[in-house]
Design a protein around this nucleic acid. Structure first.
Lengths: 123, 123, 123, 123
DNA sequence: GTGGTCTAGACCACC
DNA sequence: GTGGTCTAGACCACA
């Protein structure tokens, strides 16, 4: 596992988990790898993993059964989708459009870029 | 002036200046507000402003006349446009598309959002 | 059965049992549910239940007949009442009063809350 | 500074800060001691203090100015009072009354205890 | 076995 | 100077 960029590792782990839930790879009630397991697997300190888990627990995405482990929370998917969609519409998209305007990139050009992107990732 | 989020304040100031140049509000040779003035105006430590100016100077977007102030550099607009466009195509757009996929937002929905955005900002 | 908060589950079970004895629901010599039964009933690891039983046995509230089960001890009621009353006067009440002061809740308001409580639980 | 009991040190620090705000000793906008300062003062590890600060920041009781320090948030008092009062009325008081009933302690006795408490703390 | 707390110390970005 | 991240490692309570 590679962690790059300026974003803190523990937030990159958070994103990793969020993506697995959003893509339905992990479902409600499913148990996450234990703190130690995941730490070894992705080669970071257990404290860092724990920090990610705590972060997600505070946001009701996962929860903890004492002495057993962490689990995907009941409506984790809905909660995450809700958070991220709102963020997308209210923040990401407008900011993206603003940049487009500033760089004089037309919506037609964006559609072309999107088609290219989909070809490369054929999904 | 409010500075929020995880992005360093000095980079937020850099963006602010870049936008003014990209939108042609500030043109070649124009003098920027002094470090002190700007610092007071946006309620930030002068060192932070200076850091932004230095950052932009290193990238040939602005230049300094000793004892007088900072000025928009000769081809600031072209330089910025080049940097930002490359960044947009290589980084911003693909990442944006990736988020769209994850949140199951179709390109048609994005086009709709864009139309809305343009209406609100009729520009 | 739901176990929440920061208090250890085994202590929450201890409280559960204590309440049954203090409210005279369970009397001297009465047999408790077996470790396994209780564990299944309240959805908890048998070890956890055992820990609660051991805890209460050490305090002479229950005792064990080997191969048969756990039973409410002879003066369990008196013992518990004694422990809990002391705890109440020395610890619970002062701490409670302290919180009242901090939140600027007057004794008159507390009396009103108490009256309400009694109405709801008419006992 | 002494930290006792089973409650984590970082939560005891949280309580300490909350009490200072609730008792109006610290007011809106006031700067808290720096992480390092407080750590030395109360003889714990800076990481532990930071954890308390982060905890309170997540709950909008304090906020951070980068490179400067932590400050009491705008409506910290109201937020805290609200949280704690609700907790008192919904949780603490009913549970307290329940214990009273279980121990057969009358409201008159409680009032007597309260008078005693106030005499000792003449406030 | 599980997670949770705490310490010590290093290193970094930022103001 | 400020906080933030990360590591290593100890120790503990709990299931």
């Amino acid at each position: 596992m590679e962690f790059i960029g300026t974003q803190p590792i523990y937030l990159q782990i958070v994103d990793l988990i969020a993506e697995n839930i959003l893509s339905r790879k992990w479902v409600e009630g499913e148990r996450l790898a234990s703190v130690r397991e995941l730490a070894i697997q992705i080669e970071v300190n257990p404290n860092t993993v724990l920090r990610s888990f705590t972060y997600l627990q505070n946001r009701n995405v996962i929860f903890n059964k004492r002495g057993i482990g962490y689990f995907v929370a009941e409506s984790a998917y809905e909660v995450l989708l809700n958070i991220k969609r709102t963020e997308f519409i209210k923040k990401n998209a407008p900011q993206f459009f603003r940049t487009m305007d500033l760089l004089d990139i037309k919506i037609s050009e964006l559609n072309r870029l999107y088609t290219l992107y989909k070809k490369e990732h054929h999904s």
